[in-house]
Design a protein around this nucleic acid. Structure first.
Length: 490
RNA sequence: CGGGGUAUAGCGCAGUUGGCUAGCGUAUCUGCUUUGGGAGCAGAGGGUCGCAAGUUCGAGUCUUGCUACCCCGACCA
């Protein structure tokens, strides 16, 4: 087979870039740092949207849409929020262009300067909370459970397709509650939804935990996250959920009358996942032949390729393929029949492997004669012949197997690259090869900064679930309540 | 914003001490043969050599300036 991808052993980042472009997921645009998401990549995003959206609706959330542009003054209302985002905001200053005097193109019309400059949203807390102020008066208006699917802009220094781009797509949930407990419960609920989605649908095992103060969202009391391990041993934050306390309610004066008739500030949460999940999907499962997609997220689950020598064989084989397609569609699978005669079967095999289609079915004259079909699975690259009657059940079962196998493989990989470590000198060496390191930390920002400075590793999260006893910080030797996860991260 | 690199056909690249008609692979188009793992042969089309100025009889090649992009840092989901 012709080699189209750089192997991931040879150059991991190049492998990733090759994969994204060759599998036709996305490409760089003429705007620096912004990507064009191509139809196949966007189809994956649509699957992510559909499945998550259903989960949000089931838990009582509704979608709404807030503006792209936010008055600059809104930003200064919550101190740590401004500080966190100020350095990466795009600003709209004018509203009109005019013909350039030299006749070459257009220039900004300086007379059309905005009274108040507008910020292109890097996140929507401020515009949303300024709106919620008018929506909430009484405990009867609560909880307010809103989500929006949107694009946002953060002016990034260095970008990579899906993992970090200046503009990206995401969903952001913003909820308001009458009590602290209820808001905390919401924060956890959404975090668990993300974890379930990552594991069950994307086949990516995640560690659920809490961020240290330095990694916290600007404006949050607590930030929780799910962290996944990529195939190079680096960590990727796959979703976040924030308990915002009353910070934004106070900043935007959102008060309600409680059951006792007293005025109080509401309690808030926000939570989000982005197109970065597509990057996670790629780097969690793929191999040197291309993308490997879990069946539940694959835009096409089964591809059928007819094989024939002449027109007569073609019509017989094609009829069989159509019959197979129909049967599989009857059991709710998404199936593509690739009957193009402009490409040869071998070319198609390689192409659909590159694109990560979970199952490939090939039908040729020999199969018709023997009453079989050839079925190949993408995750293991195994091929086998199965009887051509009653194959639907086989296919369904195989898809389940693939989904499970992809998850198991990723989990095993993470376990093999997760280490308990108590000695900082050993840590400094070991971190070079990637992986997650469970280590005791004294809980101080100083120690955290020292480790980051010396090793580029950060605390990915303080895990929610662990059965560790207390110990001593690997750097300072001070007492520590539990182990935290250190890793280098995307 | 620092340090390094690149810019030649859609994509990936070569082009020597300046030398006359700018080439290779791949993709594209046409025809024939092929079709169970990225087909073969024959032919064809496709270029402001990043932009601007300079040196020269002559510049893809040398000089200067500019611009864009990539990689490594700082910043970040």
């Amino acid at each position: 087979m012709a080699k189209v991808l750089t192997s991931k052993e040879e150059n991991y980042s190049q492998w990733y870039n090759d994969l994204v472009t060759k599998a036709d997921l996305a490409e760089n645009s003429s705007v620096r740092g912004c990507m064009v998401i191509k139809p196949y990549g966007y189809a994956i995003w649509e699957k992510i949207q559909n499945i998550l959206d259903t989960m949000f609706k089931k838990t009582g959330h509704s979608n709404a849409y807030f503006p792209l542009l936010i008055p600059k003054s809104f930003f200064s209302k919550e101190a740590s929020h401004v500080e966190g985002f100020a350095k990466e905001c795009a600003i709209v200053t004018h509203y009109r262009l005019k013909n350039s005097p030299d006749g070459k193109g257009v220039i900004v019309d300086e007379t059309a300067k905005l009274e108040e400059e507008l910020i292109i949203r890097p996140t929507s807390e401020t515009i949303i909370w300024s709106t919620y102020k008018n929506w909430i008066q009484s405990y009867r208006d609560l909880p307010l459970l809103i989500n929006q699917w949107a694009n946002i802009v953060r002016w990034e220094m260095r970008t990579r397709l899906f993992l970090r781009t200046s503009e990206f797509l995401w969903q952001e949930g913003h909820t308001a509650h009458a009590t602290k407990e209820e808001a905390i419960e919401e924060t956890n609920k959404m975090l668990n939804i993300y974890a379930e989605f990552a594991e069950k649908t994307l086949g990516i095992p995640v560690i659920i935990g809490k961020k240290s103060d330095s990694e916290k969202f600007a404006g949050a009391i607590d930030t929780y996250c799910i962290e996944a391990m990529m195939l190079d041993g680096k960590a990727l934050q796959a979703g976040t959920s924030h308990f915002l306390g009353q910070n934004f309610a106070k900043a935007f004066d959102v008060k309600f009358t409680n059951k006792e008739g007293k005025l109080d500030y509401v309690w808030a949460t926000s939570w989000g996942v982005s197109t970065r999940l597509i990057g996670a999907l790629i780097m969690a499962h793929s191999d040197n032949n291309g993308l490997v997609l879990p069946p539940k997220i694959a835009p096409i689950q089964v591809v059928i390729i007819p094989i024939y020598k002449n027109e007569q064989e073609h019509s017989i084989v094609l009829n069989k393929c159509k019959e197979i397609k129909e049967k599989l569609e009857n059991v709710a699978l998404t199936v593509k029949l690739d009957d193009r005669d402009t490409q040869k079967p071998g070319w198609k095999f390689a192409e659909y492997e590159l694109k990560g289609i979970p199952i490939r079915i090939a039908v040729g004259p020999k199969d018709i004669e023997n009453g079989t079909i050839e079925i190949a699975r993408r995750d293991t690259l195994e091929k086998k012949l199965i009887p051509n009657d009653n194959f639907s059940e086989n296919v369904l079962k195989l898809l389940d197997d693939i989904q499970q196998n992809i998850y198991n493989k990723a989990l095993k990989f993470r376990e093999q690259h997760t280490y308990k470590i108590d000695n900082y000198t050993e840590f400094k060496t070991a971190i070079e090869n990637g992986g997650f390191f469970e280590a005791f930390w004294d809980g101080t920002p100083e120690t955290e900064a020292k480790i980051k400075d010396e090793t580029k590793a950060t605390i990915r999260c303080i895990p929610q679930y662990s059965n560790d006893k207390e110990g001593f910080c690997m750097v300072t030797g001070k007492p520590s309540k539990k182990r935290v996860i250190f890793a280098r991260a995307y």
